[in-house]
Design a binder for these strands. Structure first.
Lengths: 164, 164
DNA sequence: GCAAACTATTTTAAACTTAAAACATATTTT
DNA sequence: AAAATATGTTTTAAGTTTAAAATAGTTTGC
């Protein structure tokens, strides 16, 4: 049992399709990096990836975002975003205010404390990512980013076709 | 001397940025496909991706696997695997027996019913994957698989370095 | 032999996630 | 203007996931 494979690709058999192989490898790579980052966030900042993600979205939008946009950007359910928001408000890291014109919608925004906290985490986060991905080399990174850009585009297209 | 110094530093920062960008794109792509597959599994077979994953690992190993191996292969916690196993046993899709020589360890194995069920799901699964990834084109798929193979290798190396 | 250390797994408690229902507010229709 | 419909968000209930503690069994060092 010594040379045992330890990831999603382990299930491959010889006649598997190239698409399937790519999908399993994609899943392996993102799981590897994601598990690393998740563990580091917990260890150093006692927080979680979803919470970090949430704050990262807001950091790019100084005017804040409405809950629906956040849900779409993070590709998770509205209820999920709602729950994370409640925690972050309790910790004083974000504000959540209803709009004047439409009292159904809420805008969430980083507080000063939230921004300060996020900046500290983001600096470490980038270091972790570079540890994981940097060794691949710049040429490979550029090429991978380009190809994944294509994949994203075609997947989104396929998705909207099937929802017609 | 100053110009050269600044150049190197600027280059470094730029490279770092690329790592981060690639990571976010990787996460986007796998989330897109993963959400599609997850939703399809629920809709057509009323099951989940982890349960499918679990059975997929067993399908390749007619002699079964011990819980620890499964946890490593699926890159999830042991407790998680344990919970999934309990469900699958209840549904009669796998067996779970303790070993003669070491009564701590359990071997899980697909039952006949489990294998039959899995084969049906796997066929559809491959169709969904091809819908999502196939449109990228064979050349791109090959190239992506190769680059992700590199990424996997370097990430695993970085990981084992940091665990020394 | 036997206690200490180790290993494999399960259980537990807390956090996360989702779909669906509920709620609150806006907009459109009649 | 009332009713119907649509929209944005939260709540709920059920299931998933994790780290850590607990349990059970095995191996090691004296």
């Amino acid at each position: 049992m010594s040379a045992e494979q330890i990831d999603h690709e382990a299930r491959l058999v010889e006649d598997d399709h190239h698409s399937l192989k790519l999908w399993l490898r994609l899943l392996t790579c993102s799981s590897l990096v994601e598990n690393n980052i998740r563990e580091s966030l917990r260890r150093e900042f006692n927080t979680t990836l979803p919470r970090f993600d949430f704050m990262a979205q807001l950091q790019r939008e100084p005017d804040g975002l409405v809950m629906g946009s956040l849900s779409k950007r993070m590709m998770v359910s509205g209820g999920n975003v709602s729950g994370i928001a409640t925690q972050l408000v309790k910790d004083g890291l974000i504000s959540r205010d209803s709009l004047k014109n439409d009292r159904r919608t809420f805008v969430v925004k980083l507080t000063a404390k939230g921004l300060k906290t996020f900046n500290k985490m983001a600096a470490r986060h980038e270091e972790w990512v570079i540890e994981n991905i940097g060794p691949l080399g710049n040429d490979n990174i550029e090429q991978l980013a380009k190809l994944l850009g294509e994949l994203k585009r075609t997947t989104l297209t396929a998705q909207s076709e099937s929802n017609k």
